Simulated assay, not measured.
Amino acid sequence: MAFDINHKEIIIGSYVKYINTGTKGIVKDIKKEDDIEWVLLDNNLMYKPDTLEIIEYEKKKEEEKEIDEKEIEEILEKEEISDVDTNIDACGAG
């Protein structure tokens, strides 16, 4: 069994962070070679388990998240510009 820096068990599919650089990835395999455990991430690099930290799956950035119709209406209402003159005759084209 492989354990992270906080002594949590690492399993295939765990979302982890390499503590030295902050690199994040999903565990694809756990191997043992010459009595040393290695964790293979989806970046095709292997790390020693005690240099990894299991982290919660991070949601997409706020601007990338899906919002429902009600939230859109609330945003539009907040962003509404008032007191704007919409007189098109004043365009000055000629």
Results as ranks from 00 to 15, higher is better:
residue 1 M to I: 06
residue 1 M to F: 11
residue 4 D to Y: 11
residue 8 K to G: 09
residue 9 E to I: 07
residue 12 I to Y: 08
residue 13 G to C: 04
residue 13 G to A: 03
residue 14 S to W: 11
residue 16 V to A: 09
residue 17 K to T: 03
residue 17 K to W: 00
residue 18 Y to N: 09
residue 18 Y to C: 03
residue 19 I to H: 02
residue 24 K to W: 01
residue 24 K to S: 05
residue 24 K to C: 01
residue 27 V to A: 11
residue 28 K to P: 12
residue 31 K to E: 13
residue 31 K to V: 02
residue 31 K to H: 15
residue 34 D to T: 12
residue 34 D to G: 11
residue 35 D to S: 14
residue 36 I to K: 13
residue 39 V to K: 02
residue 41 L to C: 05
residue 42 D to T: 05
residue 43 N to F: 10
residue 43 N to V: 01
residue 45 L to G: 12
residue 46 M to I: 03
residue 46 M to V: 06
residue 47 Y to V: 02
residue 47 Y to F: 15
residue 47 Y to C: 02
residue 47 Y to W: 14
residue 48 K to I: 10
residue 49 P to G: 05
residue 51 T to W: 10
residue 52 L to K: 00
residue 54 I to E: 14
residue 54 I to S: 12
residue 57 Y to V: 07
residue 58 E to C: 02
residue 60 K to A: 00
residue 61 K to Y: 14
residue 61 K to R: 04
residue 62 E to G: 06
residue 63 E to L: 03
residue 64 E to N: 14
residue 64 E to I: 04
residue 65 K to P: 11
residue 67 I to T: 01
residue 68 D to F: 06
residue 68 D to Q: 12
residue 69 E to D: 13
residue 70 K to A: 03
residue 71 E to L: 04
residue 71 E to F: 12
residue 73 E to D: 14
residue 73 E to F: 13
residue 74 E to V: 15
residue 74 E to F: 13
residue 75 I to E: 08
residue 76 L to H: 10
residue 79 E to Y: 09
residue 80 E to V: 06
residue 80 E to T: 10
residue 81 I to A: 08
residue 82 S to Y: 04
residue 82 S to A: 09
residue 83 D to C: 09
residue 84 V to Y: 10
residue 85 D to F: 05
residue 85 D to T: 08
residue 85 D to W: 02
residue 86 T to S: 10
residue 86 T to C: 05
residue 87 N to I: 06
residue 88 I to S: 09
residue 89 D to K: 00
residue 90 A to N: 15
residue 93 A to I: 15
residue 94 G to I: 05
